[in-house]
Design a protein around this nucleic acid. Structure first.
Length: 286
DNA sequence: CACCCCACCTGCGTGC
DNA sequence: TGCACGCAGGTGGGGT
């Protein structure tokens, strides 16, 4: 479900409600997530006040007044909900943090691919150590991308999905970014010109910004911290549209599978002629 | 090292 | 109606 825009939408909505709140009780519901701190560790949340809420890639970080940090990853179907007193607890609510006055912070996750890990003050968070650059990082430039891609033959779509390079791009936005940039998803990354990387980076920032502004993409599960759906799904140009006409040229949108995941693209708008310059065999090396 | 596959889960839509 | 199957926004471990 949640890629960078969805996580950022949750962060912005939740920060207004949660920062300043103090957790007064913690309830688990037995079923464990794929990764979750021990109950004894999570008990360290009780009595703590939330001082900040930040995002890194698709991870959320709750900062607590004693320096501990709660790392949250929503997996495919995870939600972080801030429930008002009258709201009933939804199904699949795996962690409930009571804030007083009947308000609760709830981690809900149908498929339980999510992660909730509490780290002590000053601890290194390994999940964040390996993450690549944020899309709006000043260090992220076309030349930097070309450097990371040099000599590699993996398809551009897979490169975009690799969070160790750029953090936060998932399967929906990878397809949308490639369409916006006019680049074919199968392009071996080592063959892309600097001009193509420039267009890719511009498309990446534009698409992610638009998605955040629209409140994220809701296909089936995504909801913000109040349970509201996002509206970017109506702006999707290729994702989930296999067989339907391209909104630009009318050519049927194609679906292919790359590294086990669906890619949607327009073979006309994302042709080699529209984008990258092919180089002679072997020329990309070295 | 670079890259791919698959497991980890539940739920939903489709076709027989 | 029921069942089998394929598919779904995530990551990381293990194999090639």
């Amino acid at each position: 479900m949640p890629e960078l825009p969805e996580v950022e939408v949750i962060r912005r909505g939740l920060a207004r409600k949660l920062v300043g709140q103090t957790f007064i009780a913690l309830k688990g519901t037995g079923q464990r997530l794929r990764r979750q701190s021990e109950a004894a560790i999570l008990a360290g949340l009780v009595g703590r006040q939330v001082t900040g809420l930040t995002r890194r890639g698709k991870y959320l970080l709750l900062q607590l007044d004693d320096g501990q940090r709660l790392l949250v990853h929503l997996g495919m179907t995870g939600r972080l909900l801030f429930l008002e007193p009258a709201c009933e607890l939804p199904a699949h609510a795996h962690l409930v943090l009571e804030c007083g006055e009947g308000q609760r912070l709830v981690f809900q996750d149908v498929r339980r691919f999510g992660q909730v890990l509490l780290y002590p003050a000053g601890a290194v968070i390994p999940e964040l150590q390996q993450l690549g650059l944020e899309p709006w990082s000043r260090r992220l430039t076309p030349a930097w991308l070309a450097g990371r891609a040099a000599g590699r033959r993996r398809p551009l779509k897979n490169f975009l999905l690799d969070g160790r390079i750029i953090a936060g791009i998932g399967n929906i936005y990878a397809s949308e970014i490639l369409f916006a940039a006019g680049l074919p998803p199968q392009t071996p990354v080592g063959q892309l010109s600097l001009e193509a990387w420039t267009r890719l980076l511009q498309a990446c920032r534009r698409i992610l910004s638009q998605a955040i502004r629209a409140g994220g993409t809701t296909i089936a599960d995504f909801a913000d911290c109040e349970g509201q759906a996002g509206l970017f799904a109506v702006q999707l140009k290729v994702y989930g549209r296999a067989g339907e006409p391209c909104l630009v040229c009318g050519t049927p949108i194609q679906r292919l599978v790359q590294a086990g995941r669906s890619t949607f693209w327009c073979p006309c708008c994302q042709s080699a002629e529209a984008g990258w310059q092919a180089q002679p065999r072997g020329a990309a090396r070295g």
